[in-house]
Every structure is written in structure tokens, then in C-alpha cells.
């Protein structure tokens, strides 16, 4: 069961990367809107994944995106930071019932509100770090901040849509 779950996750990852690289990266949405949805793979990993798997995995996923975007190391660094901060954020957002029955952060057990907040926080950690690393200065602060906010909102929205699409009605609460 565990194995099937992991195989499904990696198939999902392949589709997410393909969607990111072939569709989202090619959209002509101007200089402010650059949505990145691939972080969803990392922050939706099962809760019991140890950090020594999670961090290198985040690094690798980031690096694959970097290869397509010609931004060596930038996505990787943002991904690693996000993966590292996932545990504290989860702790902060602990629902009253705890995480006992929950395998991974998902809508099914934790509800749409919880999942939206969690997704938004993770996306904004990733985007804020990534866009500042990309520009590597505080020179164009207004541009960068607007880019973070607009891209972050679109990314969060896209991830929520995708999660809803791939959750069956029965599973939804």
C-alpha cells in the first residue's frame, strides 16, 4: 500500500513538472505573474517522511525545475527552505483533533479552510524566497513585492483547483 502510494506520488510529480514546464512557464502573463505549482508535491508529502529524505528530495525537485528554467540553484534553494519550514508550520496549524489519523496534509481529513491556509503559507514562503533570490537585491522592491503577491495568489489558486480536481467527491468532506 505504501509502495503504491509512493509510485502514485511520483507519477503525480511527473505530471506536475510537465504542467509547470510546458504550460505555466510558457504562458504569456506579463512580468508580474509567474505561478509555480510544483511546490505542492513537497508540502503534500506524508507527515512521517523523515527530514533526511524530505530535504534532498526538495532539493532535487527544485533542481529539475531549475534545469528547465536556466536558473541554477534558485528553485532548489527556495524548495529546501520550504521543506525545512514545513514542520514548524504544521505544528503552528495543528487542528484541535491533532494529526493522529492524518497521513499527509490533504483536504480529505483536514478540511478546505485548513488546507487553503496551509497552501497559501507554503506558497508564499517559496515565492518570497525565490523571487528575492532571483533578483538578488532590494533595488526593485516594489516590482518584487507585487510579483510575489500576484504570483502567490495565482499559484495558491491553481494548487487548490488541482487538488479539488484530483480528490473524488466521496473523499471530500
Amino acid at each position: 500500500m505504501q509502495v503504491i502510494n509512493w509510485i502514485l506520488r511520483f507519477v503525480g510529480l511527473a505530471f506536475i513538472i510537465a504542467f509547470q514546464v510546458l504550460v505555466l512557464n510558457n504562458l504569456d502573463t506579463g512580468i508580474y505573474i509567474h505561478p509555480y505549482i510544483y511546490p505542492m508535491f513537497i508540502f503534500m508529502l506524508p507527515l512521517n517522511v523523515p527530514k533526511w529524505i524530505m530535504l534532498p528530495l526538495a532539493f532535487l525537485v527544485g533542481l529539475i525545475i531549475d534545469m528547465f528554467n536556466m536558473t541554477p540553484g534558485m528553485h532548489a534553494s527556495a524548495c529546501v527552505l520550504m521543506a525545512f519550514l514545513r514542520a514548524p508550520i504544521l505544528k503552528l496549524l495543528t487542528p484541535p483533533t491533532g494529526y493522529d489519523a492524518v497521513g499527509s496534509p490533504n483536504i480529505r481529513y483536514l478540511g478546505a479552510t485548513w488546507f487553503t491556509i496551509f497552501t497559501a503559507i507554503m506558497v508564499f514562503i517559496h515565492h518570497t524566497f525565490y523571487f528575492f533570490v532571483e533578483i538578488l537585491s532590494f533595488q526593485h522592491l516594489g516590482y518584487t513585492l507585487l510579483k510575489i503577491v500576484l504570483s502567490g495568489i495565482i499559484s495558491t489558486f491553481l494548487i487548490l483547483i488541482l487538488t479539488f480536481l484530483f480528490t473524488t467527491k466521496k473523499e471530500r468532506k
Binding site: F59, P72, G73, A76, S77
Partner: peptide
């Protein structure tokens, strides 16, 4: 591990 991976990323950058 986090610091090592971040250092590696920034080395790449």
C-alpha cells in the same frame, strides 16, 4: 542538512 543544501544551492547560483 538544511544548511548544507542551501549552501550547495547558493554555490550553484
Amino acid at each position: 542538512l538544511f544548511l548544507i543544501l542551501e549552501l550547495l544551492s547558493f554555490w550553484l547560483i
